[in-house]
């Protein structure tokens, strides 16, 4: 297969950036999308040009590092996969593929297709945990949790923090990401003690980071590689309102 790539190049956060076009020849349908970039990068380097920078690590769809906006969709045309799990057999010979970085004010571009997602870490630091210290905890089986509840919490906990939800949302909102953690801990008995404070703090941090507001379009969930459901956003709204009304945090 031969592919034409139109890729966003930006040499550092302050650079203006622009698209560059590359022809990639003899692409194997068995290649992953990122392996095609590897091959292109080796060719570029051989020509004395710097390779295209992009984030990636585990290459098996779980670390959440890879982040390409491909032909108008985060992680490309296939549902429920990350960029590293996308294979070239999903494209046709002669296709032109446009690749852009995640775009959001809260995800500034670092270089080419790499963006800074530390805003997600700060949301987690605001309250995405159960405040227990090492040791001194009860026996694991002292807290029975109904299987359905544990399963639902696990659905939410699967979030890999890639940011595709923000990238797809027309408002660059981080509600799906934030709600996944709020929801997981609101469902589990372990999360009850800090339930109200947690949601208040995480939502406040989310806003401080400059993400947009949720307008319930559902784009986030549609592109989520882990198919996190919109129900979690509704749960977070509910948690937030009831916390605001009933918590003693003035």
């Amino acid at each position: 297969m031969n592919i034409t790539l139109k890729v966003w190049r930006q040499n550092g956060p302050k650079d203006k950036g622009g698209f560059e076009t590359y022809d990639v020849k003899d692409v194997s349908p068995d290649m992953s999308f990122l392996e095609m970039f590897d091959v292109l990068n080796i060719d570029l380097e051989k020509d004395g040009k710097e390779g295209i920078h992009f984030d990636h690590d585990c290459r098996e769809g779980i670390c959440g590092m890879c982040s390409m906006y491909i032909n108008g969709k985060p992680h490309g045309p296939k549902d429920a996969v990350t960029t590293c799990q996308l294979h070239m057999r999903s494209f046709k010979d002669g296709d032109t593929i446009v690749v852009e970085p995640w775009r959001a004010a809260a995800f500034p571009v670092i270089k080419d297709l790499m963006v800074d997602r530390t805003s997600f870490d700060r949301i987690m630091q605001a309250g995405g945990y159960v405040d227990v210290s090492t040791g001194g905890v009860p026996d694991a089986n002292e807290i029975p949790i109904p299987k359905v509840v544990a399963d639902e919490a696990m659905d939410a906990a699967q979030c890999i923090g890639c940011g595709a939800c923000v990238a797809a949302c027309k408002n660059a909102s981080a509600m799906l990401f934030t709600s996944a953690k709020v929801s997981q801990l609101a469902l589990l008995p372990q999360g009850q003690v800090e339930r109200k404070t947690r949601v208040e703090k995480m939502v406040a941090q989310m806003e401080e980071e400059g993400f947009g507001n949720c307008t319930n379009t559902g784009a986030c969930s549609a592109v989520c590689p882990k198919e996190i459901s919109l129900e979690h956003i509704a749960r977070m709204n509910r948690e937030y309102l009831s916390a605001k009304v009933s918590s003693t945090n003035v």
Partner: peptide, 22 residues
Amino acid sequence: VNIIDQCVAQGVPFAREYGGLL
């Protein structure tokens, strides 16, 4: 054994049986 206790207390959603135990 302490590890499992610790992780459960943190909210790690381990698989459960219908009775709610691990």
